[in-house]
Design a binder for these strands. Structure first.
Length: 180
DNA sequence: GCGACAG
DNA sequence: ATCTTGTCGC
């Protein structure tokens, strides 16, 4: 969890669970929501806004993981996808901050946003209690010099730190076994 | 039937 | 997502 607009780490929480559902495009929530909720419950303070790794309403049934998490927690949530699930869009202009609407079946479901020049754009869509315009604004203000917002970058870093630590622990126990 | 398909 | 070495561009 980061402060806004300073983007300084305020608190960290993590949860690890066995995979209980396969990855199926369109059904990502069933695989990841339980663990995300477990991590959120471990925070002492709840966030005022969630930037979720995946789609909001830019989903076949307009209910991606950001909608799911936002609905269950009643927290404002934004879908920040690294690639497209559904919808079509025009070529996105080349400069940071430029964006093009993402449309599907006659409606605008999100924005294809250039958070950094010369890199693939991000797929932004409302998840819960936020408009597309406001969502784009927050994503930009949470982004510095990289393609992904700082929130997502910190989350990935924490997750990899933990898995690396657990891998080391496993190797340690294997060494113990060999020595016996 | 064929192609597409968040993480 | 993960595997996986070097490498191309800002």
């Amino acid at each position: 969890m980061l402060s806004f607009p300073e983007l300084q780490v305020q608190e960290r929480a993590i949860a690890r669970r066995p995979t209980a559902f396969p990855y199926i495009p369109g059904l990502l929530s069933f695989r990841e929501v339980p663990t995300v909720l477990a991590a959120l419950e471990r925070l002492k303070t709840l966030p005022d806004l969630l930037l979720c790794d995946g789609q909001g309403i830019a989903h076949p049934r307009r209910f991606g993981i950001a909608c799911h998490i936002g609905w269950l927690t009643d927290l404002p949530a934004i879908g920040v996808g690294k690639s497209r699930l559904v919808g079509q869009h025009a070529e996105v202009p080349e400069h940071k901050g430029d964006w093009t609407p993402l449309q599907h079946q006659g409606e605008t479901i999100g924005a294809v946003l250039r958070t950094r020049a010369t890199t693939k754009p991000l797929f932004i869509s409302p998840g819960h209690r936020i408009s597309l315009e406001t969502a784009i604004e927050y994503v930009m203000r949470c982004t510095t010099k990289y393609r992904l917002p700082e929130t997502t970058r910190h989350a990935h870093k924490l997750a990899s730190e933990i898995s690396a630590a657990q891998l080391e622990a496993e190797l340690e126990s294997q060494q113990m076994t060999l020595e016996l």
